[in-house]
Design a protein around this nucleic acid. Structure first.
Lengths: 277, 277
DNA sequence: CCAATAGTGTCTGTGAGACAGTATAAG
DNA sequence: CTTATACTGTCTCACAGACACTATTGG
């Protein structure tokens, strides 16, 4: 028999959450950066690549597999975003970085332990800011290949020791939008559904590049337009034409009187992010 | 003291989820449609308005306030999207409608009972499809005003009996993107953080209109280009020029040999959605 | 000089914005 | 005929794509 409550206070006093079905949540973070691959030619500039941070799992489940940094939410004390920041701080000692909610993953069997719903976040960082890695199981993986053919995306990640090959099928959810269902076709190395999170995150970043200034969260304070263009090119996965790129970017950056020299070719001006036009 | 496990099976056998902090989740649905406001002039076409579905709360907390249709997730049996579909089916008897995850809301105090994290969904429907409303507490509210001035958004909702005024402040999260933190400035009628969900959902729809064919999820099978243009105009909240609109839409629709007549002016051809160009 | 990147000038085609004009129904 | 919407033709301007050209360094 149900009790009748007159006021919200009275109702809340009697409320017992443990009567209801509960579950656990995690926040998982896709930390993306752009790194330099050193060049063999003194004249040539270093080739840039995207890289993402992975952690080798010490414990079951998925012991020995790689996964995104993440952790269980403490429901009494923190929000999911705070949880993501805490995890990131613990793993990399980074704080004050760009963080954006990506998607909430909740397949029934995504965690073999019990029902765990995960809200994923994208984090962006300028690699120069990354000094010490706290967790020794943590490693940067370069995105050495990212290619889509016939709705199958092939991704190759490499950290210098391990190489991870992923293949993910994209199935159009409905003809009216560009939403896809991602299905793992090949994944021997990544735990949980994190391969799907990585692809979703890289695609989100690619899209946002075109209509926001999000890229500057991955840049140092001073940069050349050549460097900036390379970052665009590696994220968009295509070459851009110099004049067009400079036209678009011109209103967003500010030329400083600093120059970058000693590169075996004409020096280039250093720029700063100016803020939105 | 921790036990050492050799295999994942062994580990899972001993795993007890209740040892860890758990919480409840809900799925909340912002169901959006476009309705006709009948005209007083036999010649004039009816004015279109967006409308959203709200439910009057029968129980504590927020008893008597309006909220989005939503319900608690059963962690053992369903995904959040399935939960959203179940709720929608129960309230409106609708199934097979467009559903898209919007955002996961998780402020510590968003539910006075206990920690409840809510994943919100946008649902779109052609109002002609909506026949019977099952829950008598359910009502369509027209968006009679939606206006942004100095980063304050004013929204007025009206269901013919009740009028709801909302004011939400938009605070830019960082200068590199277009992300805003939404803060309720005025809200006497909506429960939880649902005013924020409504604004986020309407803005998402507005954005998606420009780069997807999402609008056709709100259209009947046959429609005139004038009707379609009106739907665009009410969602984008601005007038469009006929020739420009027709150029953009031309590749997406297919002219049928049906006509719409009897409107007191030149009849117009009926079109069908053709699928992506 | 050479190789490599920095940086600019300019043509061209596409496409959105704008406006004006014609067409056709009901009353 | 009037009124209101349906539908089309065409000009202009902004801007992305493309290509060619000049500038400047280290070796």
């Amino acid at each position: 028999m149900e009790k009748e409550y007159k006021t919200e206070e009275e109702f809340l006093k009697d409320y017992d959450p443990s009567e209801f079905d509960q579950l656990s949540m995690t926040a998982d973070i896709l930390l993306i950066s752009v790194s330099d691959e050193e060049s063999n030619n003194y004249r040539k500039t270093s080739k840039k690549m995207m890289s993402i941070l992975l952690v080798k799992r010490d414990d079951f489940p998925y012991k020995g597999k790689w996964c995104l940094p993440g952790g269980f939410l403490n429901p009494k004390t923190e929000t999911l975003e705070e949880c993501a920041k805490r995890v990131l701080k613990n793993e990399t000692n980074l704080s004050n970085i760009y963080l954006e909610q990506l998607y909430t993953y909740d397949a029934l069997d995504r965690d073999p332990r019990t029902r765990v719903v995960s809200t994923s976040y994208i984090a962006l960082v300028d690699k120069n800011r990354l000094t010490e890695m706290i967790n020794p199981n943590t490693s940067w993986f370069d995105v050495v290949l990212l290619e889509e053919k016939n709705n199958i995306v092939d991704i190759t990640l490499d950290n210098g020791k391990d190489t991870i090959h992923l293949a993910i099928k994209k199935e159009l959810r409905e003809k009216t939008t560009d939403r896809y269902k991602f299905i793992e076709v090949k994944n021997d190395a990544l735990a949980f559904d994190h391969a799907l999170v990585i692809l979703a995150g890289l695609e989100r970043l690619k899209n946002k590049l075109n209509y926001t200034d999000i890229v500057f969260n991955m840049m140092p304070e001073y940069f050349t337009l050549g460097e900036l263009q390379q970052v665009y090119e590696v994220i968009l996965n295509k070459k851009l034409l110099d004049p067009a790129f400079r036209r678009i970017i011109a209103s967003k950056v500010e030329k400083t009187n600093k120059m970058k020299t000693g590169e075996g070719h004409r020096p280039s001006a250093l720029f700063k992010y100016k803020g939105k036009k």
